[in-house]
Amino acid sequence: MTTAYTGWDAPVVAEGVYPPQEDSQLLIDVMDKTGLARGQRVADLCTGSGVVAIAAADQGAAEVSAYDISPRAVRFARQQVVAAGARVDVHLGSWARAAESGPYDLVVCNPPYVPHDPNAAQPELPSHIGPAQAWDAGYDGRMVLDPLCASMRSLLADGGTMLLVQSEFAEPRKTLAALASSGLDAEILAWEWIPFGPVLSSRAQWLEETGRLEPGRREEELVVIRADKA
């Protein structure tokens, strides 16, 4: 299905925190349309501002736990949870920390997935778009995706589901294959084309030079992948 989320106002975030963008919007919309959060125990990995975790609570989740490795993000997400009056517990840590309290009925994640050249100096970008660790994910964009996919089965309860958003440039087919190899039933559930933001605009020439972007194209496809544990 194609989808575009229009009924949500992104919060203004603190410096050093990833501001919700189209990928967060798409993930929230798919979660809402599928009704997967309602009455369920939910974990939001790489929570950033906490917007997806708060949306899960608003959509009727029985319990929501959010995780991020950035202390700034955790502090800000906790402030947003209080302001929203949402029932969300925000923790400092990765999915390894989440696994200590799992398994979960639903795991949602908007991880770092933007490819970059680790050997090249990166151009200076506006500070309001957040820290590079929120998007930089190695040469192929899979520095976080690969270990996350390998760990997902252990995070999910029997009958549980994962929803994950990523860019075409991090090779969704590899995500599907990695999830399938761990025994999960995976598919692309939704997609949306969006214009390049500052990060991809700064890397467009490099993506062209490495054969991942057609010359002159300045838009990317975001996808939401669903994986189910029998």
Rank of each mutant, 00 (worst) to 15 (best):
V52E: 01
A43C: 10
Q80I: 02
A180C: 08
A83I: 02
D68Q: 05
G216M: 07
D29P: 04
R97I: 09
S202D: 06
G50V: 03
R226E: 12
D158M: 10
Q122W: 12
S49R: 04
P195C: 11
E124T: 12
A14Y: 02
V81S: 00
H91N: 12
E63P: 00
E63D: 13
E63I: 00
P103N: 13
A230W: 10
V224K: 03
D23Q: 09
A137V: 07
S167E: 11
W191H: 15
T2E: 14
D68P: 06
N110L: 05
G130T: 09
L148D: 01
T161H: 14
I188E: 04
E209F: 03
L92A: 10
E171P: 01
D228N: 10
A86M: 06
T6K: 12
A55K: 01
P147V: 05
E219H: 12
T2I: 09
D9N: 14
A157Q: 06
A61E: 04
A150F: 08
E219W: 08
A61V: 06
L222P: 01
P198E: 14
P131K: 07
V144N: 03
V64D: 00
S202M: 05
D185Q: 13
A177M: 13
D44F: 00
M143Q: 15
D29H: 11
S65C: 07
E220G: 05
T47Q: 08
D29L: 03
W135F: 14
A180L: 06
L106W: 02
L106S: 02
G130M: 03
A227T: 04
D9L: 14
I129Q: 02
L45F: 08
Y139L: 14
M162Y: 02
Q166R: 06
P111E: 02
T175P: 09
R153D: 10
V74E: 06
G48N: 06
V42P: 00
F196P: 00
S65T: 07
V13T: 15
A134T: 03
I28H: 02
L222F: 07
G141I: 05
A83N: 06
A157C: 02
L36G: 03
W135P: 02
P126E: 07
D89S: 15
P172C: 13
Q25Y: 15
E221D: 02
L179F: 10
Q133T: 12
Q79V: 02
I54G: 01
D228V: 11
A14S: 14
E15D: 15
A84N: 06
L164R: 03
P172K: 07
L125C: 10
G138Y: 11
A77Y: 01
L155R: 01
G7C: 05
G130H: 06
G130K: 01
A14P: 01
A190T: 03
A121H: 11
L27F: 10
A134V: 09
T2W: 11
A53N: 05
I28L: 14
Q59S: 13
L45V: 05
A98S: 05
P111Y: 06
K33P: 00
Y113P: 00
V51S: 12
C109G: 03
V224P: 00
A73I: 08
S101W: 08
R72E: 13
L164M: 14
W8D: 09
Q205Y: 03
T6G: 07
R217N: 09
A132I: 08
T210H: 11
G16D: 04
A83V: 00
A55S: 13
A177Y: 10
A62L: 13
F196D: 08
V224Q: 04
V42I: 13
Q21A: 15
A177Q: 15
A4K: 12
P172E: 09
A157F: 03
